[in-house]
């Protein structure tokens, strides 16, 4: 657990969502507070939204860390089980992946 790394990942996710929101009509924009549910029950992203988010996040991680961190091949539902994925929980997951 690295709180500062978690916060950095939260900010990265917010940046990615801001980038997606810039292309969306006002009514479809995704909130960016840490408790926002991204995927799972009550999630703001549909299947296409998840794909867009994952692709943008992979690109942002590559730019930020210089490392390729493939997320597309991960079955996120396996990782998170039936739980809803929030910005905060996803940031913790990313932080953990980066430390590997």
């Amino acid at each position: 657990m690295n709180p500062s790394e978690n916060l950095r990942m939260e900010q990265l996710i917010r940046n990615v969502l801001d980038g997606m929101n810039a292309f969306l009509p006002a009514a479809e924009r995704i909130p960016t507070d840490p408790s926002t549910i991204l995927m799972g029950d009550g999630g703001h992203l549909d299947s296409l939204g998840i794909a867009n988010f994952i692709v943008s996040l992979e690109e942002a991680l590559e730019q930020g860390s210089g490392r390729s961190i493939p997320l597309s091949d991960q079955d996120l539902s396996d990782i998170f089980g039936a739980n809803s994925v929030t910005i905060r929980s996803f940031a913790e997951y990313l932080s953990h992946r980066l430390q590997r």
């Binding site: 292309f23 299947s47 296409l48 794909a51 867009n52 994952i54 692709v55 992979e58 597309s72």
Partner: peptide, 14 residues
């Protein structure tokens, strides 16, 4: 975007 293409059959970025 090859990533978007293989995941969603979307060829281009936004």
């Amino acid at each position: 975007s090859q990533r978007l293409w293989f995941m969603t059959k979307t060829p281009f970025s936004n």
